[in-house]
Simulated scan of single mutants.
Amino acid sequence: MTLFFREFARTRRDTGAIAPSSPLLARALTRYVIPSPGHSRAVLEVGPGTGAVTRHIRASLGPLDTLDLVEANPRFAALLHRDYGDDARIRLLTGLVQEHELGAYDTIVCGLPFANFDAATVEDIFGRLLAALRPGGTLSFFAYAGVPPLRRAFTTGAAREQTLAVQAVLGRALERHRFRSETVLGNLPPARVHHLAPVAPLLAYAG
């Protein structure tokens, strides 16, 4: 927890949360990481941070399953390596998700602070993640409940334009691909979890 607060204060653009995800939020985000005995599943977590959600994913992994973790913060990455480096099913990729050649996944869980990015970056990341899903795969991410209207109300100038552009990108993605949303009150602050699936097979993302 101390490391998380320190990194939030130091790099708040990349560490968008003020506290690790609660168990309730972690369970909502991993709702579609469903055990499938006898079949191998590939799971991707983007922005695992200190591993609050990773622990829930790992608990549902079978012996044939794999989990890729993509973490840009080197201090968080070192912590994840310490905790999960001895698990052959788990691969840690350091750096931005845009810097990696992603595989094909059954489930993607994303903890990135999209509200902190510009619209082009958000659109790029969504395109990559949705294109990395296998047929029938799901992408789950969250946003803090009530924050979008606050950002619109209390930002001006270029910051407001960026906020509106990012929210437009998120809105289009949700309108096209969302099949379920749920509110998690037991988190600091409360969060809204969105579950997406490609509406049609997508071509490999070309950037």
Rank of each mutant, 00 (worst) to 15 (best):
L92G: 00
L202I: 14
P189M: 04
R10D: 03
L129H: 05
T54P: 09
R160D: 14
R31Y: 00
R151M: 15
A9P: 01
H56N: 10
A78P: 03
C110E: 07
M1T: 07
L139Q: 08
G38R: 13
L196W: 05
N116Y: 02
V70Y: 02
N116P: 02
L67D: 01
H194A: 14
G186Y: 08
F5T: 15
P63E: 14
G171Q: 04
A19R: 13
G111D: 04
H195P: 06
P189H: 02
A104E: 10
C110D: 05
I108P: 04
I57R: 07
G103A: 06
P113L: 04
R152D: 12
L79M: 04
T94W: 00
R172K: 13
V43T: 03
T183F: 12
A143T: 15
E175D: 15
R55D: 13
I125P: 05
A59S: 11
S21T: 10
L174H: 09
E161K: 12
A197E: 13
P190R: 05
N116T: 12
R128F: 00
R172Q: 14
R55N: 03
F76I: 02
R160M: 04
A19Q: 13
S140Q: 02
N187R: 11
F8W: 15
Y105V: 03
D86Q: 08
I57P: 12
D86V: 01
C110F: 04
Q162C: 08
E7P: 05
V122H: 10
I18A: 14
G16L: 07
R151W: 11
R10E: 11
H81F: 06
T107G: 06
E182C: 07
L188I: 15
V169H: 09
V184P: 04
A197T: 15
V193N: 10
L44R: 00
P63W: 02
T107S: 13
G171H: 01
A206N: 09
R178F: 01
G16K: 09
V199K: 06
F117M: 14
A173Y: 11
L24S: 15
L96D: 06
A206K: 03
Y32G: 05
G171V: 10
I90D: 00
V43S: 00
D14N: 14
V43G: 00
L130H: 09
A19D: 10
H195C: 02
L102R: 06
G47W: 00
A28N: 13
G186A: 14
L188V: 12
L164M: 13
D65A: 02
T138Q: 03
R91E: 00
T138G: 07
Y144S: 11
V97E: 00
V166E: 12
